[in-house]
Amino acid sequence: MRFYERVIKYFYIVIITFLTLTGFGQMPIFKRYRIADIPGLGWLAEFYITHAMHYIFASFLIALSVYLFFDHIFIGRKERKVTPTGYVKGVMILGLIITGGLMVFKNLSGILYYPIAISILDLSHLILCMALLFYSIFTLITAKRWTIK
């Protein structure tokens, strides 16, 4: 793997890890399960901190996704092909960005959604996240890649 690809890969892993941690931090579970009592992890139970961090890492994920999409369209297409794994993960990430984006919009002052819409968005964001995590574990074990040459 070229150095450039390795950098992208680790960047992606760091972003997804922090998004998952801070995303789960939106639910009141780290305190209940005393994970926040572990030295150095207290911030996981600070809702305003995890909320801000989730926004920051979401911005990184959006920037990275848009970059890789156009990079593939303009340059990568000539030398590599997206695998079914790549398409499935791409769609999941797109779903996460759309549901997440709609929730960010909802949090602005004066924006009201129907309660049922909020519940559906919350749940689908969570389900997409779990699906991406389990699928990523599967593709890690089976050594499936996003693209092939």
Binding site: Y55, S59, A63, V66, Y67, L68, N107, L108
Partner: peptide, 21 residues
């Protein structure tokens, strides 16, 4: 803070496009 970061989030796709370009 969250709402300021939400505004900054609008720049994220722009950054991605600029990087690729």
């Amino acid at each position: 803070t969250g709402n300021k970061l939400a505004m900054a989030m609008i720049l994220a796709p722009v950054a991605g496009v600029v990087g690729a370009a």
